[in-house]
Write a protein that binds this DNA or RNA. Structure first.
Length: 934
DNA sequence: GAGCACTGC
């Protein structure tokens, strides 16, 4: 498993002096700890094996459950944990339990509908005659399960007879305030299916998907559609494609009504025909892709070279076709998989769906995908798409990737943090696994760099088929690019033929400004111009507003999409003919010296500029207007955006790598190495958190922390929560802090209302407790959409937090922490101490007579961010979640603490002399005098 | 009294 033993080939890099001497302190008996750590790893192995058995049993019975939170084993375990802490549970309100029940009820409903849809799907796509005996049996089984479940459920649907009205008294005779409030809040509840009238059946599957799932479904639909229309003009038998659409025409219905006796047969036959035609058209599309002509040459090259760089533009078909070629060539014969990584979840899902369709198999069987919160694979899976982060996680359990015969790293040019780490790990593996085939797929500009990194691996070029894009530059630099962009929009609108416009701006603020400018211009120009439909798109925009960019452009109007760089890679908008590129983007940077993150507007790279221009050539020839000069493009822009690994805090990555037995992180074989300071800071932090011992070895604590998909500070807080019996609250905080930045929604136009609503959510003690309060409301009001809207909270973020929380709660068992709620909710010090156990280095003390704070460990002055509820209260000591540099150095998400807790939770870092209340010390007279003079 | 681009586990 994760921890490699002394024989590991990577141990050659083991260094003794990774931890700076001044950090060395007594962390207990290292040998004993190492023993415990290995014992822990052993237990994980056993549990993983059990789970694997469990999974195989489940998947052989029925459809694999993508989110197993309600499945037998995990809920059983959490129940027993509840039982252990029975005493404490009694004291806490039963509310949490009730919400959980309600949640499970909802979940059950959605599972049922999913099963129903799956059955319908199966019957439609693979009509009975096309099924094998086993598959037929399975289908029957599923149907039976559905029938029984429905029957059972119907018993509860309409309760007849007398029902005791609920009161608000608890078992102890006190008024349950929360329950009462819940009754008051009833109006917030979503209209149920039955309210709308004709019953729950009409809802269909869409009705029960979460907003997040719907969004992902829409995204998938977009990506899938792309393949069709784009190729339509270029392939000879594009007509075959139209034929399917005609298939739903009225002829079919008429004919079948004429002869009702054979209706079923006819239907079966026509479905079969349709499937056949579809298969033929799929084949035609496959053969029309540029990569098809290179199939044999490509396979030969892969055979000959363990590492191959594949250079191909989008639309060449490399992502969908190459794994299929490998499968056809027998790379999965020995039971090993073909893996393909993607930087984004939506891409992994949609590509897998497409490939399953092309290979005519069920998604999740031979072809599957694996992303966070969702593993749609089975033992049968031989072609597996996944996110790059997921493969990185797999390394922890399978460090030699033994289950794979071939790995393709797709979109390598995007250089995500995970991709970069994967490069190094995979390069290492190829040394002792000569049978493993590695493919690095990238856009044109970067292939050479990858080749030299992988010991001059050959480059295989596949031409793309993008439409030509004419590029225009300004003659002189533009002083105000926002104004220039707006002017260009109007210019295009007035002078160019139809086609939508895409403008790249840096953020929400700019987009809102541009929206306003365009509105004003439209008013000023009046009827002289045709209508202009302005659509903003950025990640933090609520989903329903995001969806608007996909609405078709009305006649006599032109759509203008104002986008951040979300439109550069993540979202593809059809119909874009013109791109306006001011040449800027916001980029996150990390300063290892101050451990501060900041988001700065920087000129984008030539790479990014070309990517942006390419967005104009997806449906036909396009035009790109760059709001800078050709000279600037050639001389001022960087070649590439600085890779993420050089702009990130590497604390989490460092723990992951060290858990793999890679101890010398400074000399690790990065394709672009991060700064030595960043690596040292990361290691130093891990040491302070107790994840490493004085020898720089991973401790048992560290090994447990590495299992969590959390920042090490957060992971440590979660481990510490066991001591304070509040893992429940800390798990919630893990989830909410993760989405915290996209939680509050504040559009410019409704600024005051939004702020007022956010103010109403504030709780005493600090922002963390406000977050916990938001979570309670969210669960109590059953994930209400209207409640989110009224409180200007992003439902998408809360849904994501719900997923994260579920995952964390599941992992608690794995890291051997019992799930417990704070036994005394009135006393929040346990929650605070647990958080402090991870965030003790994020502590600041108020400076006497000032509004500002001084960091406890560094002589640095910071301010509490104005969005914090403690901005006014200004307590003497605070703990913060993050430190950001914007117009000032701000600490964000702040909690009031008692400095004495520091000595309790981090005695190795804080001594009593560190926490003396300086504001109560007398100021020497001469200093006082001096101050007055200034 | 500020202003959060985008991913991922």
């Amino acid at each position: 498993m994760g921890t490699r033993d002394e024989k590991s080939p990577r141990d050659k890099g083991r260094r003794k002096d990774v931890v700076p001497c001044h950090l060395v302190n007594d962390q207990g008996d290292d040998a004993l700890d190492a023993e415990e750590r290995d014992a822990f790893a052993q237990r994980l192995r056993v549990r993983d094996r059990d789970r694997e058995h469990d999974r195989s049993r489940r998947s052989s019975l029925g459809p694999s459950s993508s989110r197993p939170e309600g499945s037998g084993s995990s809920s059983r375990t959490s129940r027993s944990i509840h039982h252990d802490s029975h005493q404490r549970q009694e004291v806490t309100s039963d509310l949490r339990e009730r919400s959980r029940q309600e949640y499970l009820k909802k979940r059950e409903q959605s599972r049922l509908e999913l099963l129903e849809a799956q059955i319908a799907d199966e019957e439609m796509l693979f009509h009975k005659s096309a099924l094998t005996d086993t598959e037929r049996r399975q289908l029957e089984y599923q149907k039976e399960v559905l029938r029984i479940a429905k029957e059972r459920k119907d018993i509860n649907v309409d309760v007849e007879g007398y029902v005791m009205p609920e009161d608000y008294l608890t078992t102890k005779g006190k008024i349950d305030r929360k329950r009462k409030e819940q009754a008051l809040y009833q109006r917030y509840q979503e209209p149920k299916g039955s309210v709308s009238g004709s019953g729950k059946d009409e809802k269909g599957i869409g009705g029960n998907l979460s907003e997040l799932e719907q969004w992902e479904a829409r995204q998938i639909a977009r990506t899938k559609v792309k393949v069709g229309p784009q190729d339509k003009g270029t392939i000879p038998d594009a007509d075959a494609y139209d034929f399917i659409i005609d298939e739903t025409g009225i002829d079919f219905v008429l004919e079948s009504t004429l002869d009702p006796a054979t209706e079923a047969d006819r239907e079966a036959q026509s479905l079969l025909d349709a499937a056949e035609r579809k298969q033929k058209s799929i084949q035609a599309v496959r053969e029309s892709l540029p990569v098809y002509d290179y199939r044999d040459a490509l396979l030969a090259a892969i055979e000959d070279h363990p590492v191959l760089i594949i250079e191909g533009e989008t639309g060449s078909g490399k992502t969908t076709q190459i794994p299929q070629y490998l499968y056809e060539a027998g790379y999965s014969k020995d039971g090993r998989k073909i893996g393909c990584t993607q930087p984004r979840r939506v891409a992994a899902m949609s590509v897998a769906a497409r490939v399953a369709e092309e290979m005519r198999v069920h998604l999740g069987r031979e072809v599957g995908y694996s992303i966070r919160f969702e593993d749609k694979t089975s033992e049968k899976t031989v072609v597996k798409y996944m996110t790059d982060g997921m493969l990185l996680r797999e390394f922890l359990t399978e460090p030699d990737l033994d289950g794979y015969s071939c790995i393709m790293i797709d979109e390598a040019h995007e250089r995500t943090l995970s991709t970069d780490i994967l490069f190094a790990l995979i390069k290492d593996i190829t040394r002792y696994r000569p049978d493993l085939r590695v493919l690095i797929a990238s856009a044109t500009m970067d292939a050479q760099k990858f080749s030299s990194y992988f010991d001059d691996a050959p480059i295989f070029k596949i031409p793309g088929r993008p439409f030509p894009v004419d590029i225009y530059y300004t003659l002189a630099p533009e002083a105000n690019y926002l104004q220039a962009a707006v002017t260009t929009v109007l210019q295009i609108h007035a002078s160019q033929p139809t086609g939508d416009i895409l403008v790249f701006l840096t953020g929400q603020g700019e987009i809102e400004q541009a929206q306003e400018l365009l509105r004003q211009a439209r008013v000023a120009l009046g009827r002289r111009i045709k209508d202009l439909l302005v659509c903003p798109i950025y990640a933090n925009l609520p989903s329903d507003l995001q969806a608007q960019i996909f609405n078709p452009t009305p006649e006599n109007a032109r759509k203008v999409v104002l986008a951040t760089n979300i439109a550069e890679t993540s979202i593809t908008i059809d119909g874009i003919v013109y791109v306006i590129d001011p040449g800027f983007q916001k980029l996150k940077t990390f300063d290892p010296h101050t451990e501060m993150e900041s988001l700065v507007v920087t000129p984008c790279s030539r790479n990014a500029a070309n990517q942006r221009a390419g967005r104009a050539g997806r449906v036909g020839p396009g035009k790109c207007f760059r709001l800078y000069t050709l000279w600037a493009y050639e001389n001022e822009l960087e070649d590439h955006t600085i890779p993420e690994i050089q702009r990130s805090n590497l604390c989490m990555v460092a723990l992951q790598l060290m858990s793999l037995g890679i101890n010398n992180l400074v000399e690790f074989d990065y394709i672009d190495p991060p700064s030595v300071t960043t690596v040292q800071k990361a290691i130093g932090q891990l040491y302070m958190l107790g994840a490493l011992n004085a020898k720089g070895e991973v401790t048992k604590t560290g090994r447990r922390m590495a299992e969590l998909p959390l920042d090490p500070k957060m992971a440590k807080a979660l481990l510490a929560s066991a001591k304070y019996h509040c893992s429940d609250e800390i798990a919630t905080l893990c989830a909410l802090l993760d989405v915290q930045s996209a939680l509050y929604y504040r559009p410019k136009a409704e600024k005051l209302n939004a702020e007022k609503a956010h103010q109403n959510l504030v709780q005493p003690g600090g922002d963390h407790f406000t977050l916990l309060h938001i979570w309670e409301q969210w669960v109590q009001l059953e994930y209400s959409e209207s409640w989110c809207r009224e409180n200007y909270l992003q439902r998408r973020s809360l849904l994501r937090a719900t997923d994260i929380r579920e995952q964390i709660v599941r992992l608690l068992e794995r890291i051997e922490v019992p799930l417990e709620s704070n036994p005394n909710p009135a006393d929040t010090s346990g929650v605070a101490k647990a958080m402090l156990a991870g965030y003790f280095s994020n502590v600041a003390q108020r400076q006497r007579g000032e509004d500002s704070y001084k960091l406890a460990k560094r002589k640095e002055t910071v301010l509490v961010h104005p969005s914090s509820s403690l901005r006014e209260a200004k307590p003497p000591w605070v703990m913060y979640y993050e430190l950001v540099m914007t117009s000032e150095k701000f600490v964000r998400v702040v909690m009031e603490i008692n400095p004495e807790w520091l000595i309790e939770v981090a005695p190795h870092e804080f001594k009593p002399s560190d926490i003396v209340d300086k504001s109560k010390q007398k100021m020497p007279k001469f200093l006082k005098k001096a101050r007055e003079l200034i």
